[in-house]
């Protein structure tokens, strides 16, 4: 019986192991990168998310919305611009720092008081309705505002992009197979088309894109499109990595929270399993079954 079960299982597994039928296009598999956030203990690299936000704001935001995020998200627990009240032992004063460093303890600064997020939001003009006249107007952004979308509606987005709709990036790394690797590969995967491939006018060859031809021009074509304040060299590869890291955070900002609660929960459940097993064995002790 057991041998049969194993044989059946093996057969079933062999079936699943059969190579997947090739897709209709010659789309390349995303290149597997190393990310700090992968694995059961992975966390986001805060500095990279910060740099990636700069790349998004400077480059991507011209066409891509991020409509499920608000500026305040940047300063929430786990966000790239979370600020903390930290006690500085040298000066003997409390001060506000960006993130927590070197194992310091600190209290998260309420979003209304976060100076970094306030500055980021204030730099953006947000469409609004004038309270007195009802006319469309613009005002400086507040932390509670959603990220400003580059186009008022999808039709305008298409019209401005030769008929192609730049996707919203809020959950982009969840909305693609192998999301982070895909985004990174796509950003760095532009090349001349291989010989014999017909050129599609107004599109760009990218072997990681389904069909090979993408409407988005190479977004990170040259170095130093942004200037990193931490001194990191803004090479196209570095910018692609950083913005991917930012988008991974944007897609799943609670990932670190989930993993850390997961660790506690799994540990708890293991203990409980052990205890319940003992109790179960105790109950059945002496009962042949």
């Amino acid at each position: 019986m057991r041998a049969h079960c194993l044989a059946a299982l093996a057969a079933a597994l062999a079936l699943f192991a059969t190579p997947q039928a090739h897709a209709e296009t010659q789309q390349a598999h995303p290149h597997a990168e190393k990310w700090s956030f992968s694995g059961p203990f992975g966390t986001y690299d805060r500095a990279s998310v910060q740099r990636g936000f700069l790349v998004y704001e400077t480059v991507c935001a011209a066409c891509h919305s991020l409509r499920h995020l608000s500026y305040r998200n940047l300063g929430e627990e786990g966000g790239p611009f979370a600020a903390y009240r930290v006690f500085n032992e040298e000066t003997g004063q409390h001060e506000t720092t960006l993130g927590l460093h070197g194992g310091h303890e600190g209290k998260l600064v309420e979003i209304q008081d976060n100076p970094y997020v306030a500055a980021i939001a204030a730099a953006v003009m947000i469409p609004d309705i004038d309270r007195d006249t009802g006319e469309a107007t613009e005002r400086a952004g507040r932390p509670s505002d959603r990220f400003r979308s580059p186009y008022p509606n999808p039709i305008a987005a298409r019209a401005a992009n030769g008929g192609a709709l730049p996707p919203d990036l809020s959950v982009i790394t969840l909305a693609r197979h192998d999301g982070a690797n895909y985004v990174h590969s796509l950003l760095t995967g532009y090349s001349d088309p291989p010989a014999g491939v017909d050129v599609v006018q107004g599109k760009y060859y990218n072997r990681y894109f389904a069909g090979g031809w993408i409407a988005m021009p190479p977004p990170l074509a040259s170095a130093d499109m942004v200037t990193y304040s931490d001194g990191t060299a803004a090479t196209p590869e570095q910018m692609a990595r950083d913005v991917t890291h930012f988008l991974a955070w944007a897609s799943d900002p609670k990932m670190e929270m989930r993993k850390s609660l997961g660790l506690q929960s799994m540990a708890f459940l293991l203990v409980l399993t052990f205890l319940v097993y003992l109790a179960y064995k105790q109950v059945w002790r002496g009962t042949k079954h």
Binding site: L275, G286, T287
Partner: peptide, 27 residues
């Protein structure tokens, strides 16, 4: 006989109670 007699020493019973209480409390 095994089920009902349970001529276990009090140490065995203590262990048994401990397991039940521990599992119940953790649960």
């Amino acid at each position: 006989a095994n089920e009902t007699a349970a001529p276990a020493a009090s140490a065995g019973e203590t262990r048994r109670d401990f397991i039940f209480i521990a599992a119940g409390a953790v649960g």
